[in-house]
């Protein structure tokens, strides 16, 4: 009975709060042009970064420092998962093997998904996507393998150094920018060398966006598959 009371109280509370929020949102009409900063980015994105996709340009170039911070958060979260679920002896405990369809399908699809993810992050500056979706796609490929095979585990020996190296690479690219230009994460490939200025809108353009997005893609992919791995392996009790 009390539970019903609690529920109805929660609903009433939330309806009032929702009404209040909706009234606030009514002052922000849907679908109208309110761009302020975005306009500047859109107008200058091609000339300043060489990227066609404005979102990627913002993520990597204009607000690259924030992205570094977000990657750090990601890293800490995945380390946290690893630390919280750390046991002395860990092993996968799945009991049922995936079905034939799943096994065959995953084996067949795995390289293609991997390739698709790579495609996404390499072409981040041209097409929708970038390092984050690309990395997630790669992690999905490993997830499918985990689901299909009982004793599959990611190649830890490869992934853990790769994760660290990708993060270090990000910082390194930024430091090179600091050395060449005057600030951290200065786009040296584009601004100094104008490399790829001739073929704007093609793969070899966009300054250091593809480089960094490749690193982010590797990092996100390895980290998310690491999270999956940590959550799937359990302590083995003798």
């Amino acid at each position: 009975m009390v539970s019903v009371l609690k529920r109805s109280l929660a609903i009433i509370t939330l309806l009032i709060i929702g009404y209040w929020l909706a009234q606030g949102l009514a002052g922000v009409p849907f679908g109208q042009d309110r761009m302020l900063v975005g306009k500047y980015y859109l107008e200058n994105v091609k000339a300043q970064t060489g990227a066609v996709n404005a979102v990627t340009a913002i993520v990597v170039n204009y607000r690259g420092f924030d992205t570094l911070g977000e990657v750090t958060v990601l890293f800490i979260a995945s380390t946290g998962v690893g630390a919280l679920l750390w046991r002395r002896k860990k092993k996968r405990t799945a009991k049922t093997e995936g079905s034939v369809v799943l096994r065959t399908g995953s084996e067949l699809l795995f390289p293609f998904i991997l390739m698709f993810g790579t495609y996404i992050f390499i072409h981040g500056h041209l097409t929708p996507g970038g390092g984050f979706p690309g990395g997630a796609t790669i992690a999905t490929a490993f997830l499918i393998l985990y689901m299909a095979f009982v004793d599959y585990e990611i190649p830890h020996r490869l992934f853990e150094p790769l994760e660290g190296l990708a993060g270090m690479g990000y910082v390194l690219v930024g430091l090179i920018g600091l050395a060449i230009g005057s600030y951290f994460l200065f786009d040296w490939i584009w601004q100094t060398w104008h490399w790829g200025a001739a073929n704007l809108g093609r793969l070899f353009s966009g300054g250091f966006i593809p480089v960094i997005y490749t690193l982010i893609g590797l990092k996100v992919g390895t980290e998310l598959s690491g999270i999956v791995d940590s959550m799937l392996t359990e302590e083995v009790r003798e």
Partner: peptide, 10 residues
């Protein structure tokens, strides 16, 4: 607290 704010605001 949100509820109080909401009622106050509305």
């Amino acid at each position: 607290i949100l509820l109080i704010l909401a009622i106050w605001g509305v």
